[in-house]
Design a protein around this nucleic acid. Structure first.
Lengths: 351, 351
DNA sequence: TCATAAATCTAAACCGTTAAAGGGGTTCAA
DNA sequence: TTGAACCCCTTTAACGGTTTAGATTTATGA
């Protein structure tokens, strides 16, 4: 009593496997199978509790109807939301989604993408942690459909959906300057090959320059990615002391901001009274926290929609030579909340 | 120039497919293939950039080496962390993980589990949204390996890893009582068939009774799951007014708590001075928020470890009649932070 | 020298499904 | 009455691996 297959239905009805296959796939009419026979097939399938084997189907068809999503850390709300939105669009398009987590490990990322290919997953969306575009160049040469999301490689023609990190950062820092802050610190991460972070830093520096503030290395804190909390606790102090102590922080991503908030809390430094905070990436916490945190919000839902649509287009036109990789750059949006003070406060403080 | 297969390697070396398969799977020695031939096969595979087709392999072997995880909402940090931990254990055990999101939709949950089965996924871990155990009973009859996590069905012998929601809630509410609160409200969700929530409610009521406080329906707010924020905004007021206004809230899950914090913030009600807050489920936000939120933390990592280990055991002993379903119940832990005040505060307030 | 064993490799079946091509029988028009 | 068209279905051959059950060659021992 092993699982019934199409052959068992065929046998017990004395018809061919092909006929059963056609009927169960809804092509009965198309192939002129009589209504009676069709009914019999469907009834027998139900009777035997037949369940199609998608692996066999996939082998024959050369496709799996699955799309892969590869992210560095699914417990980071940024990626968790990406996963959720992508799931929505993928499933609306009739595909299934396989979400994989790399723990920010480049080797694991490679292995997972390889695994997804071997699994005949039709295409992948990747928020890569890698600094090395070679794997993706190769993937592209082999015509395996993929889309990079959030992080991409400059100057290479591949499918990618990103946001304009430079102007997002530029506007954010300009906002701080307009609010009257003069000594604006920046916190970012190493390794610094992630295009997102370097662009945010550049936006920060150029915004300062535009307003005749000279960027100072002393105001830039670079935290090793591997141990954010401890390192922040050590290094943040340096920004808080002396005549050049920062009066505002532009922080490169949500994880850094969360840790900063914890440390500032511990040090009894009040936001925004003693220190203004502006974060790149907006997560729910920032809205709930008191004070709520002003943040640069990336249009996650639009990013996901675009990624899925590009990927599916790529999958469908896999071997169409006229298909050209698409790069979509979306705008971020500054969400002004309480953590940078408000004009009223600033007026009082400045007096 | 389509993708090379095992047959292409075999052909170009004038050996059999069998031999190639054996060598590439590392069984060359076992089958006495000469070292020279083995080397040639491996070199040729590299030369042709051969990539195994796991679908074909899976078809023949009847297994996919994939484990499925089905959650209601991957953007909920509770599930996001579960996903991350499970990924870790699954991948340490040599399996791949496929994470799927149901958007809390019972029908979609059914469809996804069905899809995973058809995909020959070896087994699934499910945080079900369903009130109806029938699908799982059927799954069990058909010997498809699965483990329920977080939510399970009472009185049914199936693999499940849950926490003791009743005592978690009981202890939490007792803590509030010990801190001096007398009019403790409870916020929970409909639909109320989720065992987790009803048990937490029961724990709440019995803790009150034990301390001679009569539970009052007026102190229990039941929020429809579909529209938490708006409904909370409407209904929360009723707990805040009149002589019986609550002085503390025991809140049934993290989502409810987040929304509560927002509403209380808007209403300028200060925590814990005007209202103590204790949440079931601990998320990062609660640690960062000021005041930090006292919460009942479930041992997520242990839950995930257990689930994976039970599932894999089940997979390996799929047709072993001596395999009996396992139920693991873990203890939650109360993490005391600032949102219920501290003894010092209480002394002052009580005076 | 012949039988046996060991070493090395192979042919064919198999997993469950689908695509391509085809094949009897009936009906209809010329 | 012959050919074409149509209806309803079947045969065969993939898809890309793994497994089973040998087959061939060479070495070994009596």
């Amino acid at each position: 009593m092993k699982k019934p297959g199409i052959a068992d239905i065929a046998e017990s009805l004395r018809v061919s496997k092909t006929l059963v296959s056609m009927v169960l796939n809804g092509y009965g009419d198309k192939h002129g199978i009589s209504a009676l026979t069709q009914r019999k097939v469907i009834l027998k399938a139900a009777e035997l509790n037949y369940q199609p084997n998608r692996v066999a189907r996939g082998l024959r068809l050369g496709k799996s109807n699955i799309i892969g999503l590869v992210v560095a850390d699914i417990s980071n709300p940024f990626y968790a939301y990406i996963a959720r939105y992508i799931e929505g669009y993928v499933s609306a398009a009739g595909y299934n989604l396989m979400i994989c987590n790399t723990h920010e490990d480049v080797e694991k990322e490679k292995a997972i993408i390889q695994m997804l290919r071997e699994q005949q997953v039709d295409g992948v969306i990747v928020a890569t942690s890698s600094s090395d575009p070679m794997d993706f160049v190769r993937l592209q040469e082999e015509k395996y459909p993929f889309v990079l999301i959030d992080r991409c490689f400059k100057d290479l023609k591949m499918n990618a959906v990103i946001t304009d990190n430079y102007s997002g950062a530029f506007e954010a820092v300009e906002h701080l300057i307009n609010m009257g802050y003069q000594r604006i610190g920046h916190i970012t991460l190493t390794p610094d090959y992630l295009s997102t972070l370097t662009e945010r830093k550049l936006g920060y520096m150029n915004a300062l320059r535009k307003h005749k503030i000279k960027p100072s290395q002393k105001h830039i804190l670079t935290i090793p990615f591997s141990d954010i909390k401890a390192e922040l606790r050590n290094k943040l102090i340096s920004l808080l002391k002396g005549p050049n102590a920062a009066d505002a922080l532009f922080i490169g991503n949500n994880n850094l901001t969360v840790s900063c908030l914890e440390v500032l809390n511990d040090l009894k430094i009040r936001v925004p009274q003693h220190m203004a905070i502006l974060s790149y990436d907006d997560i729910e916490l920032f809205n709930v926290n008191s004070p709520s945190i002003t943040a640069v919000a990336q249009p996650l839902e639009a990013m996901c929609e675009q990624s899925v649509s590009i990927l599916i287009d790529n999958i469908c036109r896999k071997s169409d030579p006229s298909f050209v990789p698409r790069l979509v750059v979306l705008k971020s949006k500054l969400i002004i909340r309480q953590s940078c003070g408000n004009d009223f406060n600033k007026l009082i403080i400045n007096k």
